[in-house]
Amino acid sequence: MCTNIATNVLLTGSARMATGWTKIGEARMSFDHATHIWVDHALRINFVDLSDESASHVAVELDLVSGRALLRGLAEVLDAAEATDLG
């Protein structure tokens, strides 16, 4: 099914591609038809350089379980960082 489940988050960061590092300004997230991994639907995250969308972006596609695992891992790391006042 076409879910239309999607959201965008502005962010400040960099991502590494085969050609080197690039700035990223937005994460575009959706849970919709998978393109590459062998599941019907997937969490898709595309980190985009808003100043050069067509050339600079890094995309990942994860199944639902992996997306949840990533979310837990991110929360664990960020909670630890905030707890030590490193943010």
Binding site: R44, E53, A59
Partner: peptide
Amino acid sequence: LGHGRPDEVTEKMRAAGG
């Protein structure tokens, strides 16, 4: 919305709200 691989263009469509 511009051009690129089909999945990249679809993502632009989603970002634009359809």
